[in-house]
Computed example of a mutant assay.
Amino acid sequence: MLPTPDSLAVDAEASVAPVRRRRWGAIIAISLLGVALAGAVAGCAWFFLQLDAAQNRISEQEQELEQQRELIDEKETFGAAMDALLESTVKFDDVLTASVVPWEDYRRLAVQAWAHRWDADAVASDTRAVEQAAAELDASWNEAQQQAGSNASGSGYEAVIDRLSGGFVSSVVDDAKAICADGDDGGDRELLACVFNDDPYVVHFDAAADSVPYMNDELRAGIAYHEFAHVLQITNPTATREALPAFDGDGEVMADCFALTFLDGWQLDHRIWTSDYEYWDVNIGYGTACTGAQQQVVRDWHAKLGVELQPVSSKAL
């Protein structure tokens, strides 16, 4: 049967409808593709942002590790420097002038390093301070060895002081009367020598007194022993505080007693013959000879003197 106009119209409409569906379908597909691409771009951006953050974090962690390694290295260097310093103190064991090794300064350096334990630069500075302390201690030792082996002034005073001190105390023959005049409590006695509290490693002997006609090596030795007792009193303050009450707190009487105890044949009163018919009666010291009990106090005091090796520690770095 031939199609009627109505059926043709139906067929025509039917043939048109699929075309419209394909157009909408194409538009929808393109839009979905655009959304998908946009999602992919956004995803890549997020990935790159995450990767960049991770790389920054890795860089920060590497920097932290490097700082930790540097800190560990500085702590080890400090420890080695402190070990070397303490090793240098060993040779000072029993040197009579105890304060020649400044233990409190070394403890302060150790405690300071502990306080700086998280700061590599500060620990490095502490290490340099320890190395400087070791250099100064070694220099003190070397200087003492040279001093003990020479007599720069050529005097009998220096020979005795070098022997008693092991070279750690120097002797100067100068205008001791003028230098030592401040605080002189010798009354009408002639001042022969002195030691200063703030500089106990130098003994001043008076040049004019050394040239008087009655001066001889026996007197010089007694004077040197007396002055060396003052050196020991100043450089060993704790032991000295314990001993002084036996002398009513008089350090001069104690110094005389030291000479009377340790210098064989020493006495305070001397008759010095300067010719066959001329002599001088000389009293050296402060006029009081010590008792046997006081001499024992001096011996006990002397036995406590000197450098004692001590631990220097802080909390572990």
Rank of each mutant, 00 (worst) to 15 (best):
W273Y: 07
A14D: 10
D217W: 06
T4H: 03
Q55G: 03
D217Q: 10
F205E: 10
D175A: 08
A26F: 11
Y279A: 12
A246F: 00
G34S: 11
G25C: 04
S170C: 15
D175M: 08
V101H: 00
V231M: 04
D121W: 05
Q295N: 00
F92D: 01
L192I: 08
A178E: 14
V172D: 06
I30F: 15
G25P: 04
A54L: 10
V298W: 01
T4C: 10
T97F: 02
S125K: 12
Y157T: 03
L263P: 03
N236Q: 04
Q50I: 00
N216D: 15
F196W: 06
N142M: 09
A40S: 06
G186P: 05
W273F: 07
D162L: 07
Y157V: 05
V202W: 14
R23H: 08
F262K: 01
Y214I: 02
D11Y: 15
S140M: 02
V307E: 01
S275G: 09
G39N: 10
V307Y: 00
L71V: 13
S150W: 00
S88W: 06
L71M: 12
V172R: 14
Q63A: 08
A84T: 09
F47T: 15
L49F: 07
L71Y: 13
V282E: 13
Y201D: 14
D300Y: 03
D210T: 06
W301E: 15
E131Q: 10
D300F: 00
V202G: 12
E252W: 01
N283R: 05
R189A: 10
R271N: 12
D182F: 08
L71C: 10
V195G: 09
R241S: 14
I179D: 14
E64K: 09
S150L: 04
A246G: 04
D185N: 11
D210G: 15
D256N: 04
Y279F: 13
Q146Y: 02
D162E: 15
D269Q: 13
A239H: 00
V172P: 05
P237A: 01
W114P: 14
G187Q: 12
D138T: 06
F228K: 02
W103V: 08
I30K: 13
T288L: 02
V253Y: 09
D206Q: 04
L8F: 03
E76F: 05
M215H: 11
I58V: 08
D188T: 07
I284P: 01
A144H: 09
